[in-house]
Amino acid sequence: MSALLKVDKLGKHFGGFVALEAIDLDVTPGERVGLIGPNGSGKSTLVNCIAGALRNDSGSVHFDGRRLDGLPAHTRTRMGLARSFQLPKPFRSMTVAENLHVPALYTVNARHGQHLSHAQIDARVEEVLTQVGLHEKARRRPRDLTQIEMRKLELARAMTAAPKLLIADEAMAGLSHSEVDDILALLMQLNAQGITVIMIEHIMRAVTSFSQRLVVLVAGRKIADGAPDDVVRNPEVVKAYIGE
């Protein structure tokens, strides 16, 4: 099967600091990929380059057969590439439901051949909120939400955009054991619906149980890519995480 996302020799530097060096990554439709690596290894930079928040200096990113380089982030979202942010970035002046109206209005309705009416948008928002368990807080503002609810809102906003690929950037950082399970179940559910998921995570328990494939970044380079069991036994990965 041809790749949904194809990252080819992608490089990014900030001044003299090389953040990413010749990263290759293929993700096939429906796959669950885990992206791990120590702090500062370039995971979020890679996500930002794929999603369009940053521009890559070299290499290319293809999504769904189209080259993404140079396209603004909102165009990529409209093409079906959604991401959540490591630090939740809710629209603070809006209610939880209104937060989800934004991707419905600006992403779903911007696609060719699609136009949801107000009633359809309301129904879609209600559906997503129910799925993530936030429907009772639909009329509340983000400041009234707990940490896990904020993460769920972040995911819900990405889900409302009806993506083909969802990149969850540390959606579970700082959550309790059972809360992590909550989010994991949600992401599994999304994947079962046919959404390809790239998960960036530090919590190894979560990422190994979720991923069909693990990709490891260390200091801006990809050092491993394969089945989770093999990857965690890879000597280079062990060295990067635990030291020699």
Binding site: P72, H74, F85, P90, F91, H101, V102, P103, L105, A161
Partner: peptide, 21 residues
């Protein structure tokens, strides 16, 4: 709606499909 998302968070607005510029 779009203008309010820009006021609240421009990166998140772009990620939600809002053509901010």
């Amino acid at each position: 709606y779009g203008l309010a998302t820009i006021r609240d968070d421009e990166l998140a607005a772009e990620a939600a499909g809002v053509p901010t510029l």
